[in-house]
Amino acid sequence: MNDYLIQCRGVRKSYGRKPALTGVDLEVGPGRIVGLLGPNGSGKTTLIKLLCGLLRPTAGTLAVDGERIGPATKAVVSYLPDRMYFADWMRAVDLFQLFRDFYADFSYEKAIAMCRSLGVEPKDRLKTMSKGTKEKVQLVLVMARSAKLYLLDEPIAGVDPAARDFILRTILTNYDGEGTVLLSTHLISDVEKVLDEVIFLKEGRIMLHETVDAIREQEGRSVDALFREVFQAGPVFGMEGGMS
């Protein structure tokens, strides 16, 4: 058993000459729901892709559950990408069978049950589904595994507020309480109350890593309000007064 589920040391990632992450040190424990917050282009997706092994760091090391990123960590990481990557002739049940073959921790029965509660017909083909329904299917695929780490890249970006609540509830009620959930978003006010801790990412670096309750206790305001100030104050650094 490792104290930290996620460990990053001096992680850098550049795309050609363009830096995306410029030195990330991060430790996250088990059983946490963590928000990865930052404006567009701050490096959220890059960090998530490094953790699930889709990208390799330019420098630095990453570990999940004490193991360097590789086949062993992929078996315990459940990843929701920011876009759909399945062929649209497939049915949800085809995907469930595929995932059952791929991942030892995938529960076919749980996937079907989740579809039922989300109002998705598992025998429908993806191409007949609306965008929101497809997102639900993807979420089912990810949450029907009993992984140690769930990496959710923008799980609520494309859906309406009612569906958003529903998806957050699905995450809350379907994660087993021992796994850690790392979810990226810029819709902070919607997710704030489900999070244990938040990570503010800015220009490829971690600016703040704190629990939600500690932020509220120290700042006397919501994470959303703090985020708005932090990310508006940036361009006016060095000016007299700035945001008061």
Partner: peptide
């Protein structure tokens, strides 16, 4: 878990 789901909050927060 029931209370956390009802309030739509993190179970750790409800535990506290």
């Amino acid at each position: 878990r029931e209370l956390a789901a009802e309030a739509g909050v993190n179970p750790n927060t409800m535990q506290r």
